[in-house]
Every structure is written in C-alpha cells, then in structure tokens.
C-alpha cells in the first residue's frame, strides 16, 4: 500500500480549502450588515450581526406581497425536496420491479425508451409539462410542483440494475414460500434495496431542493416560494438608492446548504454501500 507523505496531505488540505472557503466566506459575510458588505465587499472575518440577520431572514415577511417568510420558504423547499425524493423512489422502484420481474412482450424495448429519456433534460419538456399542468388547473399547487417531475429514468435504471443483481433463487424460494408478487416486493425487495433507496434519496432530495426553473414557472403565488427563489428575490430590489440585503441573501444561501448536507451526513453510510456493493 502507498504510504502517505506530507505532500499528499498538502494536496488534500488545499483541496479541502478550495471547497470549503466559499462556504466560509458566505457565512462570514452574512454576519455583517448590508451597508458594510456594499462598501467593503466579501468578508472572511466574523461580524457582529449574526443573530439579527438570521432572525430577520427566517421571520421577516418579505417578497412583493409581504406574506412570505424565510421559514415558509424553507418549508416549501422541504416539501419539494422530500416529495421529489420519496415520489421518485416509489415510482421508479415499481417501474423497475415490473421491468425486471414481469415478462412483458416489449420489456426490453420499454426499458430502452425509458433509458433514452435519461438523455433529455427537464428543460426540453418544460413547456409541454407546463401546458398540461395549466390545463389541469394545477398551477400554484404542491401537486403541480411535484408530480410532473416524478418519472425518473435515473432511478428506474439504478433500481433495475440492482434488482438484476438479486439472485433468482430468492424469488423462487419466495414463490415456494407462498409469497405473491406484492408480498415479495414488500417483504424481500424493499428491505434488500435499503442502501439503494438511501443513495437515490440523497440524489433526488438534492435535485428537488435545488430546483429553480420549474418552481418559478409553476408558481406565481408567493406562498409557494422556495429558498432558491427567495435568494434571488432579495437581490432583485435594486431600485433608486436602495441596496440589496446582501447579508440576508448570504444567510439564506447558508441556510439552504444545511438540509442537503444533513441528508448526506445521515444517509452517507448507506449511500456509499448502495453505490459500491450489492448487499448479499
């Protein structure tokens, strides 16, 4: 095995700093007042307005209608992130289950159809999706925000590959033990997929959390604003002599980082397991 030398650590430290510094700068800057930031630019030393800024961000009513608080945006982001992750996992597991375990005439063909859509980003189908949701009167609803994006080629693909690695004998043993398709799915497949589910959950939660374009199209009502939109709207007030609340924008950005980081930390152990080994 390779013995670590001091140089390796230097490279590691530089790499870590490179990734961590922007976050530190954002956090430190958020503890100064907007005027200070406007005068002196980004800060790397702590300021004296930590509690004040974060308190304001979380509770002050803002936006154009004055009805949306940071808490509300945080909640919306959570609903979107968790709704995405859970919905995508449920849907793609069931799709993959059907593709792997049921003999369809065109199962392989269908799989490739699904797989091909992996190549198409959301932006390609964003207008038709919007049209459909608008006709269904689902604009400005959580349903409209979440449901159209639930079909996940990535998730289906990962679960399909995982299910294929489960030995056939397990299915046969379950059949002899009297477990039907639904029982087998719930009693055997789901518990075995735990690590895989954790991995997909992280990916999809972060994906949902970071959505910007889709919520912006789908919702005009400010009570559906997510954090991503909140940050943007704080910076959009450059009118006359008013300066944007940089401190609040940074505070919100820092807040926006915390939940995905927490999710990764919590699921990390399973996540790595899920992507590297099939638990036998």
């Amino acid at each position: 095995m390779h013995r670590t030398k001091p140089l390796d650590h230097v490279i590691l430290i530089i790499g870590a700093l490179f990734l961590v510094m922007p976050v530190v700068v954002a956090f430190m800057t958020s503890t100064h007042t907007a005027a200070e930031i406007h005068r002196q630019g980004l800060q790397i030393l702590p300021g004296s307005h930590l509690a004040e800024t974060y308190g304001t961000v979380l509770t002050q009513r803002g936006g154009f209608t004055g009805e949306i608080t940071g808490m509300r945006m945080l909640m919306n982001s959570f609903i979107l992130g968790i709704g995405f992750a859970v919905g995508k996992i449920v849907l793609s597991m069931m799709a993959a289950y059907a593709l792997v375990y049921f003999r369809f005439r065109a199962a392989t063909f269908m799989f490739w159809v699904i797989f091909t859509t992996l190549l198409l980003p959301l932006e390609v189908r964003i207008m038709p999706s919007y049209g459909v949701m608008s006709d269904l009167h689902l604009l400005n609803t959580y349903t409209g925000l979440i449901v159209p994006l639930l079909a996940s080629a990535t998730g289906t693909f990962y679960f399909r590959q995982f299910f294929k690695s489960i030995p056939d004998e397990l299915l046969e043993a379950a059949r002899i033990d009297g477990a039907g398709p639904i029982k087998f799915f719930i009693d055997v497949i789901v518990p075995l997929s735990k690590t895989m589910i954790a991995a997909i959950f992280i990916i999809m939660f972060v994906y949902g959390w970071n959505q910007y374009l889709w919520p912006m199209l789908m919702t005009t009502d400010e009570s559906f604003f997510t954090l991503m939109r909140g940050i943007k709207s704080i910076l959009q007030v450059w009118v006359g002599s008013q300066i944007p609340d940089y401190n609040q924008a940074f505070a919100m950005a820092v807040l926006a980082i915390i939940p995905p980081v927490a999710v990764v930390v919590i699921f990390q152990r399973w996540f790595i397991k899920g992507l590297t080994e099939s638990d036998k």
């Binding site: 030995p167 004998e169 397990l170 046969e172 043993a173 379950a174 059949r175 002899i176 033990d177 009297g178 477990a179 009693d187 055997v188």
Partner: peptide, 16 residues
C-alpha cells in the same frame, strides 16, 4: 409452487 405442497433446498441456500 406454493400450492404443490413441496419444499425446496437450493444450491446457494437462497436465504432471505
């Protein structure tokens, strides 16, 4: 298989 009143032992055990 479940209705045939048989039990099977597999080469790779096939334990859950």
């Amino acid at each position: 298989p479940a209705d045939r009143d048989i039990a099977m032992v597999f080469q790779n055990y096939a334990l859950y």
